[in-house]
């Protein structure tokens, strides 16, 4: 087992510990567990950074070329974005929702083959890191929007039905959750847009064409339109609250399909095998 894989495994372990502690905080209401979870998650994130750097050095390319690397990178961006939101809003509950998501990605990532393969020289350009970093950051921000959306719907349901579970006392106010939805949208949408544009530019330099309507591109566009509709609705017609939360959830599902479903179900030039030198 290489040092890199070992670091990855330790990171996974730290995320798992953090997840358990976050859940203990929210379910058993031990505030100390949540504080500990935050520090462990931060430690895991730092180690994760180191993992990605060593991977970059070992492989010689930005480590998002196979499923293992992509999942790991996605989890890294989610944790990073969560930590940023957490610094601003101090929300243990958000951690209790986001952390398991990142952990799930890491678990799948650990099951995927981890071998480093030669990269197709045609694709090896500096547009590659730009494209994937932007795309993944966008994905991570929208993941937080999804998490906030789920929390919003739970909270709204309880306020409407007037039946309060223990979670009610831990969830933040609707206003804050809706603000997170909006913030995520206003950061995530430009990131996603730039991700798509940089991808097109990269495609042009690699294959001599900006857009080929391969399934990944098509789905990315569908997702982009969905978020564009939400942003428009928010800014002009006053969409907010429940509707915005539902949109964020649907958007995330599309995103997940664009990210994983297309790669796993529909093979094309975005599939990981296409990344390898043949």
């Amino acid at each position: 087992m290489s040092a890199n894989i070992l670091m990855f495994k330790i990171t996974l372990l730290l995320y798992a510990t953090s997840t358990v502690l976050y859940l203990i905080d929210v379910i058993a209401r031990r505030a100390k567990a949540g504080q500990l979870a935050r520090w462990i998650l931060l430690g895991g994130f730092v180690l994760h950074c180191a993992t990605l750097i060593t991977r970059y050095v070992e492989a010689g390319y930005t480590p998002v070329a196979n499923l293992h690397e992509s999942l790991s990178f996605f989890a890294w961006t989610i944790v990073g974005i969560f930590l940023i939101f957490d610094a601003r809003y101090r929300m243990t509950v958000l951690g209790a929702f986001s952390c398991p998501l990142a952990l799930t990605l890491m678990v799948f990532g650990s099951a995927a083959p981890k071998t480093i393969k030669e990269m197709n020289p045609a694709l090896d350009s500096w547009w590659f890191p730009v494209h994937v970093t932007l795309a993944f950051l966008g994905n991570a921000v929208f993941t937080v929007a999804f998490v906030a959306g789920v929390m919003y719907l739970l909270q709204e349901r309880m306020l409407k039905s007037k039946k309060f579970s223990a979670l009610y006392y831990r969830l933040p106010s609707l206003e804050i959750l809706d603000t997170i939805n909006y913030k995520c949208l206003s950061f995530g949408f430009p990131l996603m847009t730039m991700g798509i544009i940089s991808g097109a530019v990269w495609a042009n330099s690699a294959w001599g064409g900006y857009w080929r309507w391969d399934p990944k591109e098509t789905w990315a566009l569908i997702t982009w339109f969905l978020y564009a509709a939400l942003l428009h609705g928010r800014l002009t017609i006053g969409w907010r609250g429940r509707r915005a939360a539902i949109f964020a959830i649907i958007g995330f599902l599309c995103l997940l399909f664009t990210f994983l479903g297309v790669n796993l179900l529909l093979s094309d030039m975005h599939s990981f095998s296409a990344m390898e030198g043949r």
């Binding site: 909270q155 306020l159 009610y168 969830l171 933040p172 106010s173 609707l174 206003e175 804050i176 603000t179």
Partner: peptide
């Protein structure tokens, strides 16, 4: 309840 809805 108002705080849960409006935040502040």
């Amino acid at each position: 309840l108002a705080r849960k809805i409006f935040g502040t």
